[in-house]
């Protein structure tokens, strides 16, 4: 696996969806290539940051009541 390949599949590697062989090939590459390893860390940090900052917004309490009312009214 080359640096060019890593750039193309790094997000899927972080998702853990590349399959065992490819995940393992990429891990080997990262351990030997500081530049790709640095990029991976940047991707990881940006993703963690994004998830943290855009964490779940709960539905307002009145929404559930509103939904229940409208569903029952619709059924009638």
């Amino acid at each position: 696996m080359h640096c060019h390949d890593v750039k193309r599949v790094i997000y899927f590697f972080l998702d853990g969806t590349l399959g065992d062989q490819r995940q393992s090939d990429l891990r080997d590459h990262l351990s030997a290539c500081p530049e790709c390893e640095a990029r991976k860390v940047v991707h990881q940090r940006l993703r963690e940051f994004f998830r943290k900052r855009l964490g779940p917004v709960s539905a307002p309490p009145h929404l559930k009541q509103r939904l229940t009312r409208s569903l029952r009214a619709f059924a009638e």
Binding site: L54, P56, S58, A59, P60, L63, K64, T68, L71, R72
Partner: peptide
Amino acid sequence: GWDFEKAAMPYVDSLYNTAYR
């Protein structure tokens, strides 16, 4: 209706979160 409510209500927060974004 009752079955639907029981099945669907647990997803309100998830749906609302994506709808809000």
